[in-house]
Design a protein around this nucleic acid. Structure first.
Lengths: 120, 120
DNA sequence: CCTCGACGGTATCCATTGGTAACTGGCTAC
DNA sequence: GTAGCCAGTTACCAATGGATACCGTCGAGG
């Protein structure tokens, strides 16, 4: 009845992690850092319009989860560099599978939506 | 700079679909329907405590996106059966990749969180 | 009778969250 | 002196998520 794990138990940590991964910004941060470390503003500019507050929240969470590291260089102006940890990098593959699926099915979904709205 | 697609463009449909897939309940609905059609209450009971309103919203969205079908049997008491479409079923694989990742990394993430909170 | 429960939802309300806009501090360049 | 850079933070507000209660219709049970 239940999957191999127990994602159906609300108290299961898998569920929490699933939520985390499913987060819009988390996915985009991972993809952004794919090709190397970035600074805060580089992330902000690379990801189409994120509120800095939200980006900070996302990055802190990801740091806490061990997906990225945050290195602060106490210079003026300040410099903070975010880097994927090996665990964070291991997320690229699963995320790619999802984005591939999404891109493949965009036309079908758009079409389904149009059909649905048609007879509404 | 950008992935194969353009998930970084906020107006890109891929982004919308990504949000959809990332949705907590959508994932659980797909997994629930994996082994066959289910009725509303079966879904509700199978997924650890969902508010009916939220489940309805989720199901309507998924129906609109062409991931599931909704069949109403005008009986008393009413019977409504939800079934994965082929497209919906094609989501099982990608989702499994993610859940596998999540389950594999639960210990590491939990450990990372503990370490982070330790020195906070 | 008449009330109770099954089913597939709505309706209402509140808490949490996502997001916007403005501001901070410290230094450097104009 | 004042404008700007970076990496945020601090209000503040709108939207969303979620809990709870309720609806109509019917057959079953008392």
């Amino acid at each position: 009845m239940v999957t191999k794990g127990n994602a159906f138990d609300p108290n299961c940590p898998t569920r929490t992690i699933l939520d985390r991964i499913g987060d819009k910004w988390t996915v985009l941060v991972v993809l952004s850092l794919r090709s190397g470390p970035l600074r805060f503003t580089e992330l902000r500019d690379g990801i189409g319009r994120v509120a800095p507050k939200v980006l900070t929240q996302t990055l802190r969470r990801m740091e806490r989860d061990g997906l990225i590291t945050r290195e602060v260089y106490p210079e003026i102006p300040p410099r903070v560099v975010y880097t994927l940890t090996p665990m964070g990098a291991s997320l690229i593959e699963p995320i790619s599978v999802i984005t591939d699926w999404a891109e493949t099915h965009v036309p079908a979904i758009t079409k389904a939506q149009a059909a649905y709205d048609e007879l509404a």
